[in-house]
């Protein structure tokens, strides 16, 4: 059996969990942090799928640039996801 499949399934399910937490979270700053954790798990998934090129571009983009830009946006606008 290919030993990389167990972490592959684990990280993709973890990505699902954190994506759900990011979507339902009321506080937008916490939602951005959950989204960044979800991106980290997807980085591991991409690495296990043998895509080193995509890891190199996905890691700075999804863990660094998206959260930074979204935090800039939240800082300039409002923090709550009004219900």
């Amino acid at each position: 059996m290919d030993p990389t499949l167990v972490p592959l399934a684990f990280f993709s399910v973890a990505g699902l969990v954190f994506a759900y937490l990011a979507v339902v979270e009321k506080d937008l700053v916490k939602a951005v942090i959950f989204s960044a954790i979800q991106s980290s798990t997807y980085t591991a998934v991409l690495y296990l799928l043998r895509a080193p090129d995509t890891v190199l571009v996905y890691l700075p983009v999804a863990v660094g640039l998206y959260p930074a830009a979204l935090l800039f946006l939240i800082g300039k606008t409002e923090r709550g996801d009004g219900e």
């Binding site: 990011a22 989204s35 979204l70 409002e78 996801d81 219900e83």
Partner: peptide, 14 residues
Amino acid sequence: ARPSITKKIISLTI
């Protein structure tokens, strides 16, 4: 379903 436009953008990235 979420009202905030910021939340819509976060969901779009996901």
